[in-house]
Amino acid sequence: MSDDHVYLTLAEGHDDDTRWAYGTGFEDPLHGVDTSVPDDLDAGELASVCVTLADDALVSAQRLAEWTTRAPELEEEVALANIGLDLLGQARLLYSRAGQADGTGRDEDAYAYFRDAGDFRNVRLAELPNGDFAFSIVRLLVFSSWRLAHFERLTAHRDPVLAAIAAKGVKELAYHRQYAAEWAVRLGDGTEESHRRMRKAQEQVAPYLGELFTAYDVRDEVVAVLRQVTEAAGLPMPVYRPLPGSGRTGDHTEHLAPLLAELQGVARAHPEATW
């Protein structure tokens, strides 16, 4: 092996079983899936389901990206980025499907960059600022438990594309939930300080739980998961008092607009540009 030409050595070993990181769009998870919308489906409703789930994922991924260079340990940098990349990948697929379903043919970036806060349908839980690691873990636990249960049902959706996206997402979300549950147990059980922080995080998250349980009957399943984890962590189940309004109908906290301003700023400053 010679390094006389510094790039030659890099050409070795790139055979066809090399594999991309998840979520970066380097492979087509919908390969071989018929993308035409089935005739017996309400296309408008399908689009709205896709946009809603994509908004949840995009806003969550944005918050996870904010952890970059701020995580409590380097190994957690890698883990949080993996989860963020998965969710970003889900958002991209779902936006693309929405564009096919609603007949506008809009691409993923049209949805992500050129809609205002009032048009976003994500749950408010996703847009809350990161807070400390305990808050991010409790939020991730709740969010991934709900999303996993929801996606498991979507794998049987009559739209084959949405079903395929859900099937891919289920594997990812199972890992997210496991990661969050393990950390919840460590922090709940760990030290007095970590326990106190977890209690506080639970209280902060509790008001936003109700918003998740609107479609499909996954509430009991999710609550059972949360109960199991909180018991193992030595934490109480939070009492939940739902807030009025819902992100699903466009009600948001004051935190969404600044999040979107950062996300959309460069794209909107150069509307004619290609990236």
Binding site: Y22, E73, A79, N82, D86, Y179, E182
Partner: peptide, 23 residues
């Protein structure tokens, strides 16, 4: 190698770091 507080965490980290989620 890597650092982890317990075996579960070591497995999770190993999956993230050394296989980048290769199922």
């Amino acid at each position: 190698s890597l650092h982890a507080a317990d075996d579960r965490m070591a497995l999770t980290h190993a999956r993230d770091l050394y296989t980048r989620r290769n199922e």
